Simulated scan of single mutants.
Amino acid sequence: MNVHQNIKLIDGKATSARVLAEVREQVLALREAGIQPGLAVVLVGSDAASQVYVRNKVLRAEEVGIRSLEHRLGADTDEQTLLALVQRLNADPSVNGILVQLPLPPHIDEHRVLQAVSPLKDVDGFHSANVGGLAQGRDVLTPCTPSGCMRLLRDACGDLRGKHAVVVGRSNIVGKPMAALLLQADCTVTVVHSRSRDLPALCRQADILVAAAGKPRLIGADWLKPGAVVIDVGINRIEEDGRSRLVGDVDFAAALPLAAAITPVPGGVGPMTIAYLMKNTLLALDLQQQAALARPSQEHAPCLSLC
């Protein structure tokens, strides 16, 4: 973290680099043991943002030594074809993680496709078995962005026990799993959303504020308790002064004098998401191996051939 006017800027780029270095070291040890982790990325259609995300994910995988398999399908691909591909990847022992890039074309049932991915290969943590496992505090694959936020928080705050965390937003991808992970860390957690009454007053109670509402600069200085740690998940593109730029859900300039620590946008949470996708791929491999060892009736089957 860098220090700027006694305010700690939480550097997601630097932290993600450390996470990727940890993954690279683990992958090297696995490869020396004859195990090659594999991540399959499925992209349907030609959404411009999705193309960029997939390219970055594949690059990071190659950098850390994870074998990446890209499956690019046309926008007119039917649901059954996509489901058949997912089932083949589930059954492929060389594939440890499966990521279906969202959004999918409107004619495809997103929920059905995500549910088709094996929970043990669901590196996005979106399958209901993993969502339920997270709620129960079990060792499961959890969504990458909230997991990355937790790493940033632990680095910034140390012990999180007893701190009051306020999560702004209740999405299945960030808000809800973020709240569950904070509960696991023994925080007192409040989730606020568009129907909450007096949002600023609720946010001012936060020792930790996680903003995941998708509203540019929604949270100003009057929403923050002095000394709060602010994690801004929002990535919003706006036009300002004749230029296109990315801003978060927090008014960074207004929050900076008040916060004890804060993530910038860009350069905060964003890099952590892909770093934790790589970590999840290794966790998926480990969970698959554990599951194989727990199935004595198939003790001679390849340990990664789970679906």
Rank of each mutant, 00 (worst) to 15 (best):
V123R: 07
G137P: 10
R151Y: 05
G158D: 15
D155C: 03
Q288K: 10
P257E: 02
Q51N: 09
M278L: 14
Q36L: 10
W223S: 12
G12R: 07
R67V: 13
D286M: 00
C144N: 11
G175D: 07
Q51C: 13
R170S: 08
M1G: 13
R24P: 06
Q184F: 04
R31S: 01
S305P: 00
I274Y: 11
G242P: 11
A40D: 08
D207H: 10
E70G: 08
V230R: 01
A75D: 05
G74H: 13
Q184E: 14
R295P: 04
P296I: 05
A49H: 04
G34N: 15
R237N: 00
Q289K: 09
D232S: 13
V250H: 01
R72H: 08
A260F: 04
K13P: 00
A49E: 09
V113Y: 00
D155W: 01
Q51E: 15
P105M: 07
L153G: 06
E70Q: 14
T77Y: 01
V166K: 11
K163W: 09
R24F: 05
S297Q: 14
E79V: 00
V233C: 09
R217V: 01
V192L: 05
R295V: 12
G38T: 07
G38H: 08
A91I: 12
D186Q: 15
R161T: 15
S171M: 12
T188S: 07
L120G: 13
A75V: 01
A260C: 01
A261K: 02
D76T: 14
N90S: 08
L73C: 01
A165L: 13
L114I: 13
L69T: 15
D76Y: 01
D11A: 08
G162D: 10
L209D: 06
R295G: 08
Y53A: 07
K176E: 11
S194I: 01
R245H: 02
A260R: 10
G97C: 14
L306Y: 04
N6E: 14
R24W: 06
L246A: 09
I7Q: 04
D76W: 01
L104P: 07
L28Y: 06
G132K: 00
A14C: 06
M178K: 08
L85N: 05
V230Q: 06
D241S: 05
A206C: 03
L152K: 11
R88P: 06
T145R: 14
I238R: 09
V100F: 11
C149H: 09
P146I: 03
P177R: 07
L182I: 06
R138H: 10
A49M: 12
V131A: 02
G34M: 15
M278Y: 13
A259C: 13
G45I: 00
L43S: 11
V166F: 08
Q184H: 14
S94R: 13
T190V: 09
G74Q: 11
F252P: 02
L304W: 10
D155R: 11
P177N: 11
G34F: 14
